[in-house]
Design a protein around this nucleic acid. Structure first.
Lengths: 220, 220
DNA sequence: GAATGTGAAGGTTTTCACAGCA
DNA sequence: TGCTGTGAAAACCTTCACATTC
């Protein structure tokens, strides 16, 4: 076994994020026609150190060839396997406002295996309307429809005031991963993964950086 | 002087992100009618430790009262000052596609002082059209118009293929902070701050977490 | 008594440096 | 020779614990 799936060591979030970055860059390298890539080249493209790249990969196995580097296609496949994106994930978007409907057309999701297959809203004018071939369902039927459609992840783009109610419904429907865009701290049971996407935070970081001449270590 | 602006110590990115979180929670606490808050309560709401909260704040000064806690309004003001959001930032959105136009209506930005005042696109059908009272300008005039409008930050929501050209223009126009949504590694001079917003990354993290029963330390 | 502010301790992540292999 | 894989060292970040102040 080369890919060590039963990893005992705790993998840091940073490592996982960098794997996502490597994956994207490997896809690009593949398109550019490269067969192999060194940790040095990969590091250069991500503005990291070669040691960082090698260490990240070493948590999961040894995928390279000494003296040569990594096979681009093979490494890409290994990382897809590690991240769990060598498959299709069925996703629902709850809240078809400005951001919600923008995400329905976000091609990057599809490209990584994240397929949006269900849309929900509470607005009668939106229910029944069509976005990229998907009909918007009534939020009333959230729990049943999510179950029936085998949804595994939910993207939440509802107003902060109702976000917790939606989460509770979605959790009841058995969903184990939620990506939340509402600016509020949500409560989920310990077996449900919740990530918060907070776009203001990034602008606030930029604001801080300009005001303080902040010298960041990693650009992220 | 209570707010130590000439900070010599390097502040970590995590600390800055947590300040953003504190700011949002303090706004909420203010609305809920609280006058003071302890590091314990603040920590509970953010799922952090009280020591973390106090340490974060201690880098910038001492804002609390022993035995009592922090004055909600005052601390909120101090954090706004630290982050540089006690003012208005003039922002342009370049690329008025799905995501770009969604961001124009994103109220959270306005609430934190990030005012979108200019829009750019290269599509003749979009140029001249109106989004929330702002007319879309031709990307041809990017450099001059950004200068004339005193734009300080740019949100980039163009396709990856043209993103670097847009960055070069924007940099030439004197912009020092860019929030990039294109899935590509952009090059900027060392005095320009660049942040990448990568929404697939968050889904990939969720995917990894589900597949590996990952136990995260901080939820972010 | 209650809660802050902070050195010191503990833990985690990154980088170094080199042995090992193609 | 060139580049990986990895223990060990260094850097960084978080938590502890307590003196200090209201």
């Amino acid at each position: 076994m080369t890919t060590d799936t039963n990893l005992k060591k705790r993998i840091s979030e940073s490592t996982i994020h960098r794997l996502s970055m490597y994956f994207r860059t490997l896809s690009l390298l593949e398109k550019e026609g490269f067969d192999t890539v060194s940790s040095k080249e990969l590091a250069k493209r991500e503005k990291l150190t070669p040691a960082q790249v090698r260490k990240d990969l070493s948590f999961f196995g040894s995928f390279g060839t000494r003296g040569l580097g990594y096979d681009v296609g093979e490494l890409k496949g290994k990382i897809a396997e590690i991240l769990g994106i060598n498959r299709v994930w069925r996703i629902a978007v709850v809240g078809i406002g400005n951001i919600g409907s923008a995400l329905v057309s976000y091609k990057e999701f599809t490209r990584q295996g994240f397929h949006i297959v269900k849309l929900f809203d509470n607005d009668q004018r939106k229910i029944g309307s069509n976005h990229k071939g998907i009909t918007v369902s009534d939020i009333q039927n959230l729990e049943k429809e999510i179950r029936d459609a085998n949804i595994e992840m939910v993207i939440l783009t509802v107003p902060a005031t109702v976000a917790q109610y939606m989460v509770d419904d979605v959790v009841r429907a058995g969903v184990k991963a939620i990506l939340n865009f509402a600016p509020i701290n949500l409560k989920v049971p310990p077996d449900v993964y919740l990530r918060n996407e907070n776009m203001s935070m990034e602008l606030e970081y930029l604001s801080f950086a300009i005001m303080n001449n902040h010298t960041p270590k990693n650009v992220r």
